[in-house]
Design a protein around this nucleic acid. Structure first.
Lengths: 237, 237
DNA sequence: TAGTGGTCTAGACCACGGT
DNA sequence: CCGTGGTCTAGACCACTAG
């Protein structure tokens, strides 16, 4: 929080959230902001690029930084948001059941997915998410023991992400996700209240740390009527 | 294509695609690249940030720019990719049927979605996408007449995006998307080969131009067994 | 300790939009 | 024309990693 451009970014976000500027108007020019914040224009530009990436403004050459209607971009789910954050946002009654929490040697399929060698061991976690009393989501996680040596049922019931980021202080950096619809498996029938649905929405994620190591593969299986995914895609040319 | 950092970016992408570097290795340092490309370090950094945003490298402080296994990130569908680009990538036989192409005054629902006033008129386009002889996708587009005054059946059969970007020279900049699963409608039954499926995957998109104006709402309805969505989410802190 | 990427600066020139 | 954002430079200092 001590980088100058981050401070300026947070400053501007707060101003925007408090409605100090109106959607459609422009922010003060980069030169003026540079004067006001007593910094160089390039630093202001870094802050503005952050605002742009997060959907607060759109920069228009010759005109200025146009303020967007940010309420259109407040998502229930997005990007790397974990399940725990999601459930808090929706204000629903949520419970997590852990069916399985074991450490095993990776089989062929898992080794190729996690890109690891033969002798590596992997945490295998299987959890059901209850939302308002119905078992809606089945999460199957596979995590490299090298990165997370210790896991308990209590951690799995709370939030594995929270444990990894705050207790282990590892830096989760990016993820590749794939979303498809598949027929239900026996496992789905066992652990989910399918309510007659013959298909589930499957999100497969590969999660990486800041040092570019792949450490987790997750399969999140959702009952289709309760599934929602929101995405904000900015064109990078 | 004349910006120095874009040229350098494309240069490096090509080198990476041709396997001149191995996943897990690092690129030459920023200082060395600055010498090699005869430019300043900040310009090299812009090119490297582009590589990072697009999943080619991960920068690690004190270590270097680590090369990622980019084959994991070759998407069939992603971000703002249009249907036309998609079909070219997959090398499938694709045909587009236009059922409807009319200009009408926006009703209440449409006005709130496109954020426009009562008297505005909107292009309404309904198209089916045939993939290998099966009608898999139903696309319903709504485009503001203000932005796109003229549309023909031939344009709709080819690519509306292509027309907007290349003929009208408008700059499509970002989109907000939502993905859900819904029961099939009578319209779906009429225009799609549902093959027994009772549900479709629906992608709703709000598309914006570079000057931050919302100009299009699209509903893309996919047969679930043929649906895939891929996402590369980088954490921005 | 040497080398890496991360931040910041003060200045320059350019392309574009509106006046 | 002036003001806007977009690009580029040459240099500085810092934080981190590895040998």
């Amino acid at each position: 929080m001590k980088n100058k451009f981050i401070v300026i970014y947070n400053d501007l976000v707060q101003a925007l959230r408090q409605g100090e500027y109106t959607a459609g108007d422009t922010l003060p020019s980069e030169n003026e902001l540079a004067l006001r914040f007593e910094t160089s224009r390039e630093t202001i530009r870094k802050a503005l690029n952050l605002l742009s990436q997060n959907g607060y403004i759109q920069k228009v050459r010759g005109k200025g930084s146009v303020i967007l209607d940010h309420s259109k971009f407040e998502f229930p789910v997005s990007g790397l948001t974990s399940f725990k954050e999601l459930s808090n946002q929706l204000g629903q009654t949520v419970k997590t059941h852990v069916h399985e929490l074991i450490l095993e040697t990776a089989n062929n399929q898992l080794r190729s997915m996690l890109n690891c060698s033969k002798d590596k061991r992997v945490w295998k976690i299987s959890r059901t998410r209850d939302i308002d009393g119905e078992r809606i989501i089945l999460d199957k996680d596979y995590i490299l023991e090298d990165i997370v040596p210790e896991l308990t049922k209590s951690i799995a019931e709370h939030s594995i992400y929270d444990y990894i980021e705050n207790k282990l202080e590892l830096d989760i950096s990016f993820a590749k996700k794939e979303i498809v619809v598949e027929g239900v498996t026996e496992e789905d029938k066992l652990h989910l209240d399918l309510d007659g649905h013959a298909q589930v929405v499957v999100i497969r994620s590969y999660v990486y740390l800041a040092d570019a190591t792949l450490f987790q593969y997750t399969e999140s299986r959702h009952r289709p009527d309760k599934f929602q995914f929101v995405d904000f895609a900015r064109r990078t040319k």
